[in-house]
């Protein structure tokens, strides 16, 4: 048996193949939802509201690529998978917000539309251009962006921080995922994720909140990272009103803090796989 599927089964999920469905969110700073829907319908693109998202829609049917439509080029919407739209909704951005791992910028733009200002960091230079393009297309006016390893960033304190951490991804997102991944990869990612969380803690105001998210299903990159943050940084997990099931507190033979239940774990079904934790300083 596939060792990853065996692990999922031990964690309580019976693997089923899932296909990612095309989704988007509407940029209501540029267009009203009803107007966008009507314009796309004329082009036989049908959108269906995703019940657990405020501005998220599923592309029910289409005749051609959405990113070649005038509405896309005008920045009326952004293509983003449904589960990926959840972290910003859960963070409830306000004040000055840091987006530590920003490219290609879907979540940066979501934050910018709600917060006073957002500082966006991205370590990979070649991914920076996608971030800048998306912000320009969507007409975002309140973002400052840096090409830097977030672990080296300093200078200001933030009211809220999004750490959408680099991770191993998941099998719903990538059909060849199983043949590409190893457990040691998860351990490597976990080390970086903890370092990033530790920087997030330093950059956060007292009483501020961090939304930690990954699109990984692996506990090494999720519950175990949060458990470490509770024990080593003194962060507290907060309740998350969101789609998804409870975080796991029994990881193979290891028992974790009960508060981890407040996290949200999304096994692939209606969406790709995802994990979120809201942490308070």
């Amino acid at each position: 048996m596939n060792p990853f599927i065996e692990r999922y089964s031990q964690l309580g999920w019976d693997y089923t193949e899932t296909k990612m469905r095309e989704s988007l969110w509407v940029n209501t700073s540029k267009i009203r939802v009803e107007e966008l829907k009507a314009r796309l319908e004329k082009k036989r693109i049908i959108l269906k509201k995703i019940p657990f998202l405020e501005k998220g829609f599923l592309v029910e049917s289409k005749r051609f690529s959405l990113s070649s439509t005038q509405e896309y080029l005008q920045g009326f919407f952004h293509m983003q998978e449904a589960a990926s739209q959840l972290p910003v909704q859960a963070l409830q951005p306000k004040g000055l917000v840091l987006d530590m791992c920003a490219a290609p910028g879907g979540k940066t733009a979501q934050i910018a539309l709600q917060a006073e200002a957002v500082v966006a960091l991205e370590s990979q230079q070649k991914r920076m251009q996608a971030l800048l393009n998306n912000l320009e297309r969507l007409g975002i006016k309140n973002c400052i962006a840096y090409n830097i390893d977030a672990r080296k960033f300093e200078g200001v304190e933030f009211d809220k921080i999004l750490l959408d951490a680099p991770c191993s991804g998941n099998c719903a997102k990538d059909r060849r995922w199983f043949s590409k991944q190893t457990i040691s990869n998860f351990e490597k990612n976990s080390k970086i994720q903890k370092e990033l969380l530790s920087t997030a803690y330093d950059l956060l105001k007292e009483g501020g909140e961090i939304l930690y998210s990954t699109c990984s299903l692996e506990p090494e990159e999720n519950e175990l990272v949060v458990d470490w943050a509770i024990k080593n940084l003194g962060l507290k997990t907060m309740k998350l009103d969101s789609y998804g099931s409870e975080g796991l507190t029994q990881i193979f033979n290891k028992k974790l803090s009960e508060e981890i239940k407040l996290c949200k774990r999304i096994w692939p079904s209606q969406t790709q796989g995802f994990f979120m934790a809201k942490l308070k300083k």
Partner: peptide, 24 residues
């Protein structure tokens, strides 16, 4: 860039040079 005063104040506190401040 098109940037508000408050955005520039934030940028001024950070020592490194940004690639973007406000709207390009």
């Amino acid at each position: 860039f098109l940037a508000t005063k408050s955005l520039i104040q934030i940028k001024d506190k950070i020592k490194i040079t940004p690639l973007l401040v406000g709207l390009y």
